[in-house]
Amino acid sequence: MDAAEQLNRLRWRCTRRAMLEMDILLGGFLERRYASLTPEQADAFVVLADMEDLELWPLITGKRECDNPLQAQVVAMLRDVRIK
């Protein structure tokens, strides 16, 4: 799969979530922040996007600790996504 295809797949998985909250956050992040991530951060984001919504939401609200500092960095950026 080339990079454009990979990005398209990620877009689908970020904007067709189980919960509206996550469509807005992950979709918004992909559109506005993803391109500026380092390769390591981008990988961490893909791991987050693969999680189920009810696993991911507690990380975003801080109810659960992130697995590693890189993940925590990306989660902090996710929190910053605001509605357009």
Binding site: R17, A18, E52, D53
Partner: peptide, 12 residues
């Protein structure tokens, strides 16, 4: 399914 089954909107 358009998404993995346990990502269906019933989750909400």
């Amino acid at each position: 399914s358009k998404v993995f089954p346990t990502r269906s909107h019933t989750v909400a």
